[in-house]
Design a protein around this nucleic acid. Structure first.
Lengths: 154, 154
DNA sequence: AGCCCCATGATATATTGTAACCTCAATTTT
DNA sequence: AAAATTGAGGTTACAATATATCATGGGGCT
């Protein structure tokens, strides 16, 4: 398994990387988008669009509709600034928006924590299996539901 | 990749296998459960619980609430009679309820078809990666969103 | 000014999923 | 036999997630 030892952004650095990435795609980095990204990044677990909407509402001091948040989250997922965790109907900020990876999420059924690992051999295998079955342009969704080490101990 | 060349049940044979499997687990094979299973198996694409509820309502000639269908689908998933397709919020009947497999779904974003493949090497790899990260009792969710061969041609 | 594009707002609605409580029938217990 | 227990399913209500549609307003452009 390949380790993920390149730069992990955090805080301002992460936001900066996200902004750079988004503008590189020809999209605007608006106040609203910044607020949604900040909100998403502020969670340490996958957050639902409604969770994010609530958080943004707080930070903005006004009611922000889920609707708007969805639009922006979709944009983020498309631009690799965020990932959708399918089995949790939730989103997480991508810690390294610059690099493209198929990713693997491990989600704890007990505490909700999600850890993100990359294993290019595995994801390559999945892509190839799909290709072998006649599927093209695949977007692998690899998630593992289980119990994390912390919750296991108790 | 291991091919799946063991018996694939269909129609009555599939229902019989499902009934056998469920009773083996100490659960009852009731009329309602049979109706839900038949309905689920009648779709050639992953079906939502509400799709199934509608189908069952038809076959029973009375209104069956989604609620009841959910209960039964959950039971089925637990007993390996059905699988949940996380990225589609939908369910499919398991064509070989007898054998336990981690499974891989390829879902066409265009036509909605889902094909099911098994590759024990891949799933083993995913399980091991999870274990390496301290996760236990993993339930892998491996799905690939893409475009199937048929839709690709057009 | 007038126009267009795009981000967002506002509102409504659709879809998916749970919770709480009830009934009924079968089985067990007394 | 009467009472208690249990499991399946019904009914209703509601919560959570997601999308559709139209309106508004700012910024650049002619």
């Amino acid at each position: 398994m390949t380790r993920h030892d390149h730069q992990l952004h955090q805080g301002d650095s992460l936001t900066a990387a996200a902004r750079e990435r988004l503008t590189l795609q020809g999209e605007q980095w608006t106040g609203m988008r910044a607020a949604v990204f900040e909100a998403l990044a502020s969670f340490e677990k996958p957050a639902s669009a409604y969770d994010v909407a609530e958080q943004v509402s707080k930070s903005q001091g006004r009611r922000v509709a889920a609707n708007s948040v969805y639009r922006i989250l979709d944009l983020f997922v498309g631009a690799n600034l965020a990932r959708r965790v399918e089995s949790a109907n939730a989103y997480v900020a991508n810690q390294h928006p610059g690099c493209l990876h198929d990713c693997i999420f491990l989600i704890c059924d007990n505490c909700g924590q999600a850890v993100h690992i990359d294993d290019d051999n595995l994801t390559k295998g999945v892509r190839e299996a799909a290709k072998g079955a006649g599927f093209s342009a695949p977007r692998p969704v690899i998630e593992v539901r289980g119990t994390c080490g912390d919750c296991d101990d108790k």
